[in-house]
Design a protein around this nucleic acid. Structure first.
Lengths: 197, 197, 197, 197
DNA sequence: GATGAATGAGTATTCATTCAT
DNA sequence: AATGAATGAATACTCATTCAT
């Protein structure tokens, strides 16, 4: 690993700490700078701006989460539970990130492009993983097609919940409701696939 | 309702929206002002400062929550479940407030006096409600004494969790653990009361 | 005295207290309003603005001071001392006003028109008083002419001192120096008048 | 002198001008900024806040004053006069600072910690200087002990006067009285030392 | 690569002043 | 005569970002 990459790594580690501690908004570049013993201005040599740093932090965390989630899912016996668990935990993770970094609805709007980029980058991997789980359940369509549909539906439900929030207590309530919706739809789809009455 | 009270009401409504949208820190008085079509400075005619507005918002929300929670609890059959549900939902509500308004540990420190005031003001009502539920369960001490103890224990567990947070992902994890601790202790106490082996 | 005049009187009394307590700048109209149990806005019914109130306060204080000073001067035996004392005490009073109301150089600039108005309004009375003291000392010119000259010279010395201040510690030092200059010039003029060698 | 120190120096020079011109409260950071051709925000790069700038200004002025006062005192013949002059001039200097910067009672309260720090930092030097003057007058105790006592008494008298002010015209009057009290007590102590009847 | 230095835009709060009632 | 209500302009302080060296 080059010297620069090492430094970037250290910055990310410090930033991860700070964002978790203070939230995105309240973390100042001075906070991060102090933590890596680097002048605030120097951070701009490694990253374009605060948002890009946050970007990277989220990306790392997501990768780690995905790995551990996939490992956990593989240990589940019941195939339907595998899928449901995967989708629900994915949703809960999103909530966790939002809460952890104290992201406001406004932040979510601003950071949307970043999340979208992260989303599309990860999508292929997720489709492939979920597809492999679904392989022996689907008879007609390709399992990847089903996987993609499930992911899209799940994300749409989440997206709708976020958009509708901004009203008091909506965030919490919606997530619970979204979980139920996700589970319900997933079961519907999976049972449809196995042609059960 | 007087004209002034009406205006204060409108300000609160706008503030509630804003705090939920942006969080406490990122809500500016300009945000609230715009929402009520009032100059930022005018808000100071109705409220002493930003904190006082937040204060009032939290107070309203809490009252509404308490009412609905108590109604919900009364519908539960099993007496023990009544108590446990009440205490757990109360804890979840705290987390909800903190998350909703994106309160940082720092905020919690600053706003502590406000929360404390709210807490003591509500305490009597809570004791009286919880006491009435416990009435036929206690044989020796007064039900109010037991109620107060339960509330104090529950709040202490919560308080410890808050103090210990500030570590990564701690917020989520700790609350779950605190819920379990609260439930466990409550059962211990309740079973002690009914002298079951 | 009409009801309005009575109210104006009360406002002035309160304002006098406030200005002496907090200084001109730090006295708010709310301070004065509270003190007379009158809404801040009501003050504008009686006075054009804050400056006009201050104006009046200074005017009252000056009149009172002038009366007492003139009484004091009349008790002095030596005619020269009468004049010198009058001029010196007059200067000291100016300093006292400036210090009492915490007037900055900048204030003095802003309030200059007011002071000038006060100055010209009082001038005639001062000339007449000082003239009466000088009556038996002057043989050629009218005593009023001499009186006016003395006052103008004294005020010029003071004015120059004020203008030159704004440099550190100048205020204090200059006043002392100005006192000496005033005394010296006065003696020069008085002795010139009596044609002493 | 480093570039930063030079800049800090310039800021101080500008601030000194401004504080003397407008007083502490009415001097804005924009005033100081304009004077050094520096954005208001840049001042925060060099100094923590307005109070710290004022702090430094006062510190400089005090050092300069102390030096000149000590030189002046050394030229006095009569030993008792040396001491009295030193203590009286010290008192006058305090008044001078308060008047010059238009410090209100409120300011004095806020800035108290700063004055206290300055006070204790200077104390040792003052004790040592005053002690050297007293050397040949004391026969029993150490001259430093006497010096410290004199300084403490003088400051206490001053402190009481400040506390009691806030009443009309009090500032002027009290200081004069404090001067007399200081002189009287000093003479008492000095004559006691030489065991004169 | 690193940073000292600078700043524009924002953020809570205060206050003299205005005006409709 | 009195005031409730509103506001523009200030004011101390913060922070992401820029740039010359």
């Amino acid at each position: 690993m080059s010297k620069t990459d090492l430094k970037k790594e250290n910055i990310l580690k410090a930033a991860t700490e700070c964002f978790a501690r203070f939230g995105y908004d309240k973390t100042t570049l001075d906070d991060i700078g102090s933590a890596v013993k680097l002048n605030k201005a120097s951070l701009y040599y490694y990253y374009k701006n605060k948002e890009e740093i946050f970007n990277e932090v989220i990306l790392r965390e997501s990768s780690a989460f995905m790995e551990s989630l996939q490992a956990k899912v593989l240990e589940i016996e019941n195939p339907d539970d595998k899928v449901v668990t995967y989708l629900i935990e994915r949703l809960r993770y999103y909530r966790k990130v939002v809460n952890l970094h104290h992201l406001s609805i406004e932040n979510l709007r601003t950071l949307e492009p970043m999340f979208h980029k992260l989303y599309t980058e990860t999508m292929d991997l997720e489709i492939s993983f979920l597809g492999s789980i679904l392989k022996d359940k689907t008879q007609e369509s390709s399992p990847e097609k089903i996987a993609e549909t499930l992911l899209i539906v799940a994300d749409s439900l989440k997206h709708r919940a976020v958009q509708e929030s901004g009203k008091i207590f909506a965030s919490e309530v919606d997530y619970t409701q979204t979980e139920q919706e996700t589970e319900f739809v997933t079961h519907l789809i999976l049972r449809g696939l196995t042609k059960q009455p």
